[in-house]
């Protein structure tokens, strides 16, 4: 498979003349090797991406693809060893702690796991006021803001007095969204925010994300393994595989008529909830697999079956 990113005409940065809000350029993230003198593990091998204000860019890939690492690098939680990240024209990779704290006004996060992303010992009110108090908002104003936030994410007003454990997974994720929104950020990194949720909750939380975006104009970097989720919420999509972006472009096109063989495989592997269409998709997938195998044989190099993708399970963070 080719490492070359396939850019579609009319999509991505080429369409914009001024610099987008968030730009990732040739980003490399390396973790030290596990053993003595082991080579470092490259989680990202030179990734480029851009997000414009008010836009959702979906980042889709399987475990070990580096998608979560990219999100964490943007947030300053992963070691950037090459390339750079710019926000509103300023370099934000490799900045010091103080500068990073100042960024918290603009850059926020919603994590995957609604169970561990909220401090179990703090009430919802404490969780939501914390970012505001840090920013110097008075307590009365902060409390007022919390009521407004709970309203925005459609939680009852009395939720503030309760602890996270009193809420269901979907409700907790709403709390996490409210926390991310508290200081009116310009970009939210959403790391698999609906993967832990039930089907019906998933759809509702996604619609909440869209509604908030339409109202506030916030941009999302939306990380997920699920092509159907990414299609639902994204304007543009980038597909990651082994630390590289293999295909990017308009959401509809990438998720429906993908060009890169990996994206095709990804799309055809997801079963359709309809027995008749699934029968067809399965046949398509098996045909694609044989074609790819034949090509691999011609090329002489066997780039693998399923095991190749799942052999480095440990490095998703």
């Amino acid at each position: 498979m080719s490492a070359v990113t396939q850019h579609r005409p009319g999509a991505g940065r080429s369409a914009a003349t001024d610099e987008p809000l968030l730009v990732v350029e040739n980003l490399v993230v390396e973790y030290p090797g596990k053993g003595f003198r082991a080579p470092p593990f490259q989680a990202l091998k030179g990734v480029s991406l851009s997000i414009r204000a008010g836009e959702t860019v979906g980042l889709v890939g399987e475990s070990g693809s580096g998608k979560t690492t990219l999100g964490r690098a943007v947030l300053g939680l992963a070691p950037v060893t090459g390339g750079e990240i710019r926000y509103a024209g300023d370099r934000i990779s490799g900045i010091n702690k103080k500068q990073r704290r100042a960024l918290s006004d603009d850059l926020q996060v919603v994590f995957q796991d609604p169970y561990t992303s909220l401090n179990p010992a703090m009430t919802v009110n404490d969780i939501l006021t914390e970012p505001l108090l840090v920013a110097g908002v008075s307590r009365t104003d902060a409390n007022k803001r919390v009521r407004d936030l709970l309203d925005q994410v459609k939680l009852p007003q009395d939720a503030g007095q309760r602890l996270p454990r009193e809420f269901s997974g979907g409700q907790r994720q709403r709390i996490a969204i409210a926390r991310a929104l508290s200081r009116d950020p310009k970009v939210i990194v959403c790391d698999e925010p609906v993967s832990a949720l039930d089907l019906s909750n998933q759809a509702r939380v996604l619609d909440l994300f869209i509604e908030i975006q339409e109202r506030t104009g916030v941009a999302y970097l939306f990380i997920t393994h699920d092509l159907s989720v990414v299609r639902h919420i994204s304007h543009r999509v980038a597909v990651m595989y082994h630390g590289e972006i293999v295909e990017s472009g308009d959401a509809g096109a990438v998720t429906s008529t993908p060009e890169h063989p990996y994206t095709q495989r990804l799309l055809l592997a997801a079963p359709v909830p309809d027995p008749v269409r699934q029968l067809q998709r399965r046949a398509d997938r098996q045909r694609l697999a044989t074609q790819l195998a034949a090509q691999d044989e011609q090329a002489g190099a066997g780039v693998g079956g399923d095991e190749a993708h799942s052999t480095d399970p440990s490095r998703e963070a």
């Binding site: 579609r8 008010g54 836009e55 639902h232």
Partner: peptide
């Protein structure tokens, strides 16, 4: 979400969408 309609590109540009 299988059959949900993809969102249109933000700037409403591009025939691709």
């Amino acid at each position: 979400l299988e059959d949900s309609v993809p969102r249109r590109a933000l700037a409403a540009v591009g025939a691709a969408a």
